[in-house]
């Protein structure tokens, strides 16, 4: 419950006991007062520690948001090495229906293959991946976390293609040596459709398959989701924070008119 600094201050005083004990107490008039000061100190220390832990949880949540957003900015520019460095050594990634790839180096190779084995965008390539709508849930010990996000994508190749894309992430994060990293990335592709006609008139352009035919995954797709116009609801890592609505016994319409009229 004491921070290292305070403990060190207290313990280091052991060495000074003779000197200290010879000094007359200047502000403390009795042993009783000193005891009460000591318990007061312990109380303040405990309160401080509680605030530090709470502030740390907010900082952790913010660090994780910055991490995922940094991921997005690197993805925009096809900066694969910067991206791969955001993962833990034994992290997994699973994009759309490409299957699961395990370990930082496999992830790096997967990412490079997404980008034609080159770092940086091709001339004429657009790869905007906005990282939006974070719902971050920290574990009780503050060492792991989960996050749901949504990507909105404007992608394509000048004079060849233009695509609208969208899909949610359900990711996991781990704090290693005080630094948050991505330990699991799962992106679900809701749509990836041509700009012309959008999602109303086009099916998904690749059925969620990117590089897996030439670069097989370590494990097959871990779920059964299909591709647009098939729809699905990726599971949530969090429960309803307030609680699901349970209708009263009577029909909804019966209780609908309780509101005061203006």
């Amino acid at each position: 419950m004491f921070t290292p600094r305070i403990l060190a201050a207290l313990l280091s005083l052991l060495l000074l006991v003779p000197a200290c004990s010879e000094e007359p107490p200047s502000t403390v008039t009795s042993d009783g007062a000193m005891d009460s000061d000591a318990s007061e100190l312990a109380l303040l220390q405990a309160r401080l520690e509680n605030l530090q832990e709470r502030a740390q949880r907010i900082r952790d949540t913010r660090d994780i948001k910055r991490l995922q957003r940094a991921y997005g900015y690197y993805l925009d520019e096809a900066l694969w090495d910067e991206l791969a460095d955001l993962f833990t050594n034994n992290a997994t990634v699973e994009y759309a229906r490409d299957g699961l790839y395990r370990g930082k180096e496999r992830i790096r190779e997967y990412l490079y293959r997404l980008g034609d084995n080159r770092s940086g965008l091709r001339a004429g390539q657009l790869n905007e991946h906005f990282q939006l709508m974070p719902v971050i849930t920290l574990s009780d010990d503050g060492m792991t976390a989960r996050g749901r996000w949504r990507a909105v994508i404007l992608a394509g190749q000048y004079q060849e293609s233009a695509l609208w894309g969208e899909g949610p992430y359900e990711n996991e994060y781990v704090k290693e040596d005080g630094v948050w990293k991505i330990s699991k990335l799962r992106w679900y592709q809701t749509i990836m459709v041509p700009y012309k006609g959008g999602w109303g008139l086009n099916e998904d352009v690749n059925q969620g398959i990117y590089v897996s035919p030439e670069f097989p995954p370590d494990e097959p797709q871990t779920d059964t989701f299909g591709s647009w116009p098939e729809t699905f609801l990726p599971p949530f890592h969090f429960d309803n924070p307030v609680g699901r609505y349970v209708p009263a016994d009577s029909a909804n319409a019966e209780s609908a008119d309780e509101g005061e009229s203006q």
Binding site: F2, L13, T27, V28, A42
Partner: peptide, 29 residues
């Protein structure tokens, strides 16, 4: 026990020790 010993030390030491502990706490705060 470490904390208890620390507290005992604190209350058996002089005011200077307490001042140091309060100063360290004030800096942490």
């Amino acid at each position: 026990p470490v904390i208890l010993i620390s507290l005992l030390l604190l209350s058996s030491l002089g005011a200077a020790a307490q001042d140091d502990a309060f100063l360290a706490l004030a800096e942490d705060i």
